[in-house]
């Protein structure tokens, strides 16, 4: 990596670190969602529905009927934290990365600091790459943080009610890591296209991408837990595929003229 490129990545880090609101809004959101799902008291009906789902889908939740009974009313929180919260995290992480990247690109363009960068020996692809690298660090960091916080929350509750530790299932790991990862990846090209081509209005529209999984999430609540996981798997694959496709397409629009406002 050229020293100039290192300087660019470092500058992105300074910008992110010094802009507490952006960094901590993502972390705060993850902690808030986890705390909410641990603490919110369920209704008897929702507990019953979740109880039924958990006992009939041991491959997703990885617990026997006897253990589920020992969880009592906390079974609802357990079910949400294993099956639903990971998807919410994926969407949250998408929004954080998308808003960081799109804002970063758009502000360079509107503040015209990009012109100053172009007057140096930096190439436009290096400027974009530095933002992508910082976005990737941010995404990986948030996925790890979300995984740790949610899993620790599940383990704490599980140990408290069942007196034993919960073994995370493959489906849980998929939802927690792959789904979030796929949506983080999708944030890159969407932000790139919007940031380079877009106005503030277009930028806001990029956020609407998250309504797709949110809509599916609401719709999929009628599904069995197994079908739900499959649906989310399909969304994750589609998200990752779209990310690759948009990345390939966005290479076409990375040109100097797209950054310069006459």
């Amino acid at each position: 990596m050229r020293p100039e490129m290192k300087a660019l990545v470092e500058k992105e880090w300074w910008g992110l670190r010094d802009n507490y609101s952006q960094l901590f809004s993502g972390i705060g959101m993850i902690i808030f969602i986890t705390a909410l799902s641990v603490l919110v008291p369920p209704t008897p009906q929702s507990s019953y529905a979740v109880y039924h789902q958990i006992t009939s889908n041991p491959e997703l939740f990885g617990v026997s009927g006897e253990i589920v009974r020992s969880l009592g009313r906390w079974v609802f929180n357990f079910g949400a934290m294993v099956a639903q919260i990971p998807v919410v995290f994926g969407i949250t992480i998408y929004i954080v990365i998308y808003s960081y990247l799109a804002n970063s690109i758009l502000s360079e363009k509107t503040n015209r600091t990009i012109e100053v960068l172009f007057s140096t020996s930096l190439h436009e692809s290096e400027i974009i790459a530095s933002k992508m690298i910082m976005g990737a660090f941010l995404g990986i960091g948030l996925v790890i943080l979300a995984f740790l916080i949610n899993t620790m929350g599940i383990e704490a509750g599980f140990h408290h009610y069942a007196g034993t530790w919960w073994m995370p299932t493959r489906s849980y790991l998929f939802l927690m890591v792959l789904f979030s990862g796929a949506f983080s990846a999708l944030a890159f090209p969407v932000a790139l296209v919007v940031g380079m081509r877009g106005s503030k209005v277009l930028m806001a529209s990029g956020t609407f991408v998250v309504f797709i999984p949110i809509g599916v999430l609401i719709f999929a609540s009628r599904f069995s837990a197994t079908d739900y996981v499959r649906t989310m798997l399909l969304i994750a694959i589609a998200g990752a595929g779209l990310a690759v496709l948009l990345t390939l397409l966005s290479r076409r629009i990375i040109n100097r003229l797209a950054f310069i406002t006459n």
Binding site: A7, G15, N19, S121
Partner: peptide
Amino acid sequence: KMMVGYLPEGERVYPNLSVYKNLLFFSRIY
């Protein structure tokens, strides 16, 4: 480009970075 210094119209600095870091960044570039 190493021989050129450019001041675009307006004050094109990074508003979220400190004064020192604005210069530190470009000192590393150059």
